[in-house]
C-alpha cells in the first residue's frame, strides 16, 4: 500500500469524523433533520471536491453548526407551538423565612401545560427552596400550591443511589409510577438517548461523572411522563453539547404538553422559556432625612 492511498484513507476518516460531529451539532440545535442532512451532504461534497481538511474549509463543527442555525433561525418546534393548555401548577402567596431571614415573600407562580417557567436569581435568593416547596418537600410559612396531575422532580445533586446502576434506578422509579421492569428500562434508555447518553452497561451511580449522574437524575424525573416537571439546576456538570441537548429535551417535553419549572442561573436567552420568575430581592430605597 503506497503513501498516497494511506493519505486518502486518513483524510476520509478525518472527513467522516468531522461530518458526524457536524450532524450531531446540527441536531442539537434543533435543525430539521432533512435540512441537517442537506447541510452535511453539501459540506461532504465541498470537502471531496476541494480536498481541503474540514477544519481549514469550515472551522470547528460546533461553530459551523451555530452559524447554520443562526442563518435558518430558531428550531422548528418553537415556531409551531400550540397555545398553552390548562393550569398545571399554581403557587400562591408563598412565604418562607429561615430563622428571621425572609427568603420568599409572597411569591406567586402559575405554569400551564406546554409552558416552561424559569426561576432565576442570585445565589441564596430562594430558588431551590421555592422548587422544594412546590414539590412538597419543604413547608412554607404561608401560601399554598395546587398541582393538577403528577409531579416529577430533579434535584440539584444527590437523588440517586450510589450502588445501583442506571437501569436499576429506572426500575425503582418506574415501579412507583406503575411501570413494569422492561417498560421502565426501555423508557429510561429512550429518555437517555435524547440526552445523547447510552446507559446500557453503565456502572454504578457512584462511578459516573457528575454530568452523567445529572443526566440520570433528569431521566428519572421524566420517567412515567409526569404532568409537571420541577428541575433544580439539573445541568450541573454538563458539557456544552449536553447543555444544548438538555434544552432540546425541555422543548420536547413542552411540546408534549408538560408544565416545566426549571431553576437556573444560566438563562442566557430568555426566548428559551415562556415565563421568568426573578427572585432577586429588590433593594429597598434609601430614606433621606
Amino acid at each position: 500500500m503506497n503513501d498516497a492511498t494511506n493519505d486518502v484513507r486518513e483524510h476520509a476518516g478525518e472527513h467522516d469524523a468531522w461530518l458526524a460531529a457536524l450532524d450531531g451539532e446540527l441536531r442539537r440545535r434543533g435543525i430539521e433533520p432533512g435540512l441537517a442532512r442537506h447541510v452535511v451532504a453539501e459540506a461532504a461534497a465541498h470537502l471531496r471536491d476541494s480536498r481541503q481538511p474540514p477544519l481549514a474549509a469550515f472551522g470547528r463543527p460546533d461553530v459551523y453548526a451555530a452559524a447554520v442555525a443562526d442563518s435558518v433561525g430558531e428550531p422548528v418546534s418553537g415556531a409551531r407551538r400550540p397555545p398553552p393548555g390548562p393550569v398545571r401548577l399554581e403557587a400562591r402567596g408563598i412565604v418562607k423565612r429561615y430563622r428571621r431571614r425572609p427568603v420568599l415573600a409572597g411569591v406567586d407562580l402559575t405554569v400551564r401545560a406546554g409552558q416552561i417557567a424559569a426561576i432565576v436569581g442570585a445565589n441564596g435568593c430562594g430558588k431551590s427552596t421555592l422548587l422544594r416547596i412546590c414539590a412538597g418537600m419543604v413547608s412554607p410559612d404561608r401560601g399554598r400550591v395546587h398541582v393538577h396531575g403528577t409531579l416529577g422532580y430533579c434535584p440539584q445533586d444527590g437523588g440517586t443511589s450510589e450502588f445501583l446502576v442506571p437501569d436499576e434506578h429506572f426500575v425503582l422509579v418506574g415501579a412507583g409510577r406503575g411501570m413494569g421492569r422492561a417498560a421502565a428500562v426501555g423508557a429510561g434508555r429512550a429518555h437517555a438517548a435524547a440526552l445523547d447518553w447510552n446507559p446500557a452497561g453503565a456502572g454504578q451511580a457512584r462511578l459516573l461523572s457528575g454530568g452523567t449522574r445529572q443526566k440520570l437524575n433528569l431521566v428519572m424525573a421524566g420517567l412515567g411522563d409526569p404532568d409537571v416537571l420541577l428541575l433544580d439546576e439539573p445541568y450541573q456538570g454538563f458539557d456544552r453539547g449536553a447543555y444544548v441537548d438538555f434544552w432540546h429535551q425541555l422543548w420536547r417535553w413542552r411540546d408534549a404538553g408538560k408544565a416545566i419549572v426549571v431553576v437556573t442561573h444560566l438563562l442566557d436567552r430568555l426566548d428559551r422559556v415562556d415565563t421568568v420568575l426573578d427572585l432577586t430581592p429588590v433593594p429597598e430605597p434609601e430614606i433621606r432625612a
Binding site: A135, G136, M137, T150, L151, G152, Y153, P155, G158, G159, T160, S161, E162, F163, L172, V173, G176, R177, G178, M220, A221, L223, G224
Partner: peptide, 14 residues
C-alpha cells in the same frame, strides 16, 4: 444512603 432518594421516590408514587 436512602435519605436522599426517598423524597423523590415518594413523589414517584411510593
Amino acid at each position: 444512603a436512602a435519605r436522599g432518594l426517598e423524597p423523590r421516590l415518594r413523589l414517584s408514587g411510593y
